[in-house]
Amino acid sequence: MALTDRTRIALIGGGKMGEAIMGGWIAASEHPADRLTAANFTVANPGEERRVYLQGRYGVACVADARAIEGADVVVLAVKPQVMMGVLEQIAEVPAYVGGKDGPLFVSIAAGLCTERLEGALPAGARLVRTMPNTPLLVGAGATTVAGGAQADEADVALVRDLFACLGAAYVIDEDDMDATGAVSGSGPAYVAALIEALRDGGAAQGLEAGLAEALAQQTVYGTALLMRETGQDAQTTRVAVCSPGGSTLAALAAMEEAGFARSLDAGVAAAVFRSKELGQC
């Protein structure tokens, strides 16, 4: 499937993530989203105020319900996991819906809901690709993992990967790894924010003004990630490069390790995976 100026994309859910995805695709300067304009999109969102905003901000067509899928080539399911199944029931009841291989390609961004469960709520044969983006997608720096369902072919998966690569980085994975990637990158921004909070509070405890401490922590996280990406250094090399024998950095890392720094992160990732499986019921 190739994108053209005639491709119809239905965005089900016009919240922050849905808006970021659509806005990023419209603004992208790289293949394949450079072919997409506001005219390609119809957004379904129940809130009238939100619809008015999206129409005014992007010039896209908006409707209140799942009728947005009529004539769509791609349907992006950008709603919260707890309302997803109800939305899929509405989609299946749209009179003009064409299912199976002749129907649209569905793209889910809902955490925890596996393709088997989603496909079970759609008419038989529906093509589905599951994704796990994270919130830095809002600023074009997202990390998204992509896995195809039973009826999606390689071209479907490649198209979705390329679309999300316009919003940061995108990786095709086995669906069995989706909960783990959600625990690392999907939930990861919260871990990084918690790290920044802790560094801020630690700096403040040593006499720094809290705002300055947080700004320093933010810039340090950003700069370290950029350094690693631009130089190709792995995490271990980057860490060792900052440590002088007998210096303050080694003393800090030793104290953090004694306090359970690595163990706490490992436990957090494991807990996120466990909870994701519970919520997904797959």
Rank of each mutant, 00 (worst) to 15 (best):
V60D: 04
C62K: 05
C62R: 01
C62Q: 02
A64Q: 11
D65F: 12
A66K: 11
A66E: 15
R67S: 15
R67G: 14
A68Y: 07
I69K: 04
E70K: 06
G71K: 03
A72H: 04
A72R: 01
D73F: 01
D73W: 00
V74S: 02
A78W: 03
P81C: 05
V83C: 07
M84W: 04
M84F: 07
M84R: 02
M84Q: 14
G86L: 09
V87Y: 08
E89T: 14
I91D: 06
A92Y: 11
A92K: 13
V94D: 09
V94C: 10
V94K: 11
P95E: 13
P95K: 10
P95A: 12
P95D: 12
V98H: 03
G99I: 06
D102G: 15
G103R: 08
L105Q: 03
F106I: 01
F106C: 03
V107K: 01
V107F: 02
V107Y: 01
V107S: 06
S108E: 08
I109R: 07
I109N: 10
A110T: 06
A110D: 02
G112H: 11
L113Q: 13
C114G: 04
C114E: 07
T115E: 09
E116F: 00
E116N: 09
E116T: 15
R117A: 13
L118S: 02
E119K: 00
E119A: 14
G120A: 13
L122K: 02
L122V: 08
P123L: 12
P123T: 10
A124S: 13
A124N: 10
G125C: 11
G125Q: 12
A126M: 05
A126S: 15
R127Q: 07
L128V: 13
L128T: 00
R130F: 04
T131D: 06
T131M: 05
M132T: 09
P133A: 10
T135V: 14
L137Q: 11
L137W: 05
L137Y: 03
L137M: 15
V139Y: 05
V139G: 03
G140W: 08
G140I: 11
A141G: 12
A141Q: 15
A141F: 02
G142A: 12
G142Y: 12
G142W: 07
A143N: 06
T144I: 09
T145W: 05
V146T: 12
A147V: 02
A147T: 01
A147D: 06
A147G: 06
A147Y: 00
G148P: 03
G148D: 09
G148K: 02
Q151H: 14
A152T: 03
D153S: 09
D153R: 04
E154P: 01
A155P: 00
A155D: 15
D156E: 05
V157S: 09
V157P: 01
V157G: 07
L159I: 12
L159H: 08
V160E: 06
R161G: 04
D162P: 00
L163E: 07
L163Q: 07
L163G: 08
L163I: 12
